[in-house]
Amino acid sequence: PESADLRTLAKHLYESYVKYFPLTKAKARAILSGKTGDSAPFVIHDMKSLTEGEQFINCKQMPLPDQRPEMGLGFGMGQESADEVELRFFHRCQFRSAEGVREVTEFAKSIPGFVGLDLNDQVTLLKYGVIEVLIIMMAPLMNKDGTLISYGQIFMTREFLKSLRKPFCEMMEPKFEFSVKFNMLELDDCDMALFLAVIILSGDRPGLLNVKPIEDLQETVLHALELQLKMNHPDSLQLFAKVLQKMTDLRQLVTDHVHLIQLLKKTEIDLCLHPLLQEIMKDLY
């Protein structure tokens, strides 16, 4: 009966994962391997294709993060500098990240027992967990050559991201290095759903008021993840341990990411950080 409960929990978390995250690993891998019936994603590999990619997305009514009329949309203007295009791209990434935070919050609320926790602890778990979750969610969208963005409609090359000016060029490379290794574990969407819940329910986040109920919840999800990995990957030795080890790498990735954002805030005059992301990153590490 106990393992039946753990299977029910796995199924529940998988269902909410599919409900709240629009681009699953299964869909992303199908796009990356050209196995969808739809057309291939638009490829961004230089500044010109970046501007064209923006046009492609605007045609599909994606809201712009900054709609000041004097900024224009950059079409056919010619005089717009690469700096401006890069900054606008960064703003779009922030807008998407804020939307990602909303998705992760809804997923967290669907974890049995989460909304029963002290509200301040729910905030702390999200504040510390959400960037880790967003980085894990990026992995299925990436391969060694680039990443899907805009819900899989666009593929942006790793070389292009490396060619941006400092420190933008340093933002994604560590995530590619992590993702290429993480993808070798070959987790599927159900494995991912359980792993994300384990990350969110970390009882060692700074400032938690009531650790015990969080640890109890995490323990149950850990059992469900262990069982899931044994059943789904019977030939993959020590997979459970390997997956858990990734949590250490994740914390370092987040620390480095937050430091880069803080550096950006100092060096880029025109940079405005999304209020939700500001809230999360303030006094984080």
Binding site: V101, V115, L119, N120, V123, L126, K127, H274, L276, I280
Partner: peptide, 20 residues
């Protein structure tokens, strides 16, 4: 609580992308 206004709001209600 004031420091994490938006997170509180997201936790207590569903917020549409437009509100963000």
């Amino acid at each position: 609580k004031e420091k994490h206004k938006i997170l509180h709001r997201l936790l207590q209600n569903s917020t549409s992308p437009v509100d963000l």
